[in-house]
Simulated scan of single mutants.
Amino acid sequence: MPQTPNTQTTNAPSPVPTSADVARLAGVSRATVSYVLNNAEAVRISEPTRRKVRDAAEELGYVPHAAARSLRAGHTRIVLLPTSNVLAGPLHGAFLNELQWALRRLDYTVVQYGSLGLTGDEAARAWAELRPVAVISLGDIVLCARNVATLKRAGARAVITLGPGRVPGAHALVMDQAAVGAKAAAHLVERGRRRIGVVVPQEEGLGFFSEPRLAGARSVASAEVEPLPLAHTEESAAALAARWPSLGLDGVFAYNDEYAMLLMRALQDAGLRVPEDVAVIGADDLLIGRLLRPRLSTVQIEMPTGDHLAALVDRAVREPSHFTERHDLMTAVAVRREST
């Protein structure tokens, strides 16, 4: 009988391209490949040579080995950005997106790390395993000096906290949320309102923003402040609006524009007039708030650009001993419109 040909094929993986392969294809040295692909600024290499190296690397599918590069440099280029448990709102979301783009332009690798449910000690150990050169903690997880030391022992040149205060050993980018509540309450008082409700979102994790905003509102003289728990649902807003007459409140700071729009619609559906019966103010100055009728009064929050903050992070990495430990990042201004 004739032999049946052996049609079995092997699925051996293709060899991983190396920098030596790129150097041969581009006709340059391995050192030149390293300089080009690692964006070394101290070495002058002509643009045609850079283009040849990049084209060769793309043709071969070669990418530099991050771990090897880290060993040579003594640190990674990873900036760890622990994922927030909740969305604080469009303003903060846009700010963080802009920050990530700016860090990438500075040749950092931004790694988002899901940290839901971790304590400060657990988070610090988990983050340290990735050997980041910097950590930007958004405040969902409360860090202490011990946690900062853990990260620095693992090679982090900078631990940066974003929040209302500072942690020993970390650089503080201070966002004074109490000022937002104080500006909103002061505006309502100026409009003749004294019995003021302050919405406290029931969504988990928003206490990082809502608690200092409530404290800020309470700091305003002549204001009687009533906390108002509210979930971001039509049902919760309708239930609050239904019992509004029994609360005796003539103004409300609704945490932000999204909660303000939700509550204002529910109040109007319940037969209450805005601003005659209830003056309503939000925060963040979203465009949609200006499209409502009545137009929504708000607290406008001014924050630095992502480029500005990325430059601060870069300086903290390069000159950790000379970096100022506190930067105030935001200002708040009340904007009066028709709802107050």
Rank of each mutant, 00 (worst) to 15 (best):
N38Y: 02
L106H: 13
A178H: 15
V148E: 03
V86G: 01
L118M: 15
A170Q: 02
F208G: 01
R69V: 07
S339C: 13
G289H: 10
A94Q: 09
L272D: 00
P320C: 03
A283I: 05
T109W: 00
V167A: 05
A145T: 13
V274P: 02
P90L: 12
I288V: 15
T150S: 08
Q100S: 14
V335R: 14
K152C: 08
L262W: 11
L138A: 01
F95C: 01
P294W: 04
P320W: 04
D250G: 14
A57K: 06
V133Y: 08
I136T: 03
A56T: 07
A12Q: 13
V274H: 06
L37T: 10
Q112S: 14
G165Y: 01
W244D: 08
T76F: 01
R336W: 02
E122V: 00
L118S: 10
T331K: 12
E204P: 09
D55W: 03
A332F: 08
A316V: 12
S321M: 09
G117W: 08
A186E: 15
T76Y: 03
A178P: 06
A42N: 14
N97M: 10
L263N: 04
E129I: 03
Y35P: 04
A67N: 12
A254I: 12
R194G: 14
L173H: 12
V111C: 05
E302Y: 02
M303N: 01
R318W: 00
L96E: 09
G89V: 09
P5Q: 05
I78W: 00
A73E: 13
R265V: 11
V220M: 12
Q177S: 12
W101S: 12
D314R: 10
S70T: 11
P48H: 01
S115K: 00
E47F: 00
A310M: 07
P13S: 08
G248E: 05
S70F: 03
I301A: 04
L37N: 11
D284A: 11
N147S: 14
A172D: 08
V174Y: 03
R44E: 04
L91E: 03
I141C: 05
V189P: 08
H92V: 14
E302G: 13
Y255H: 14
R336N: 10
L80G: 14
E204Y: 10
L80D: 09
P17I: 13
I141L: 06
R157Q: 11
V278L: 13
R105E: 15
E224L: 07
L162C: 03
S137G: 10
A56K: 07
I288G: 00
H65Y: 09
L96S: 09
T7L: 15
Y259G: 06
L214H: 07
A254R: 06
I136P: 00
R157P: 01
G216Y: 07
L96M: 14
G165Q: 15
G117M: 08
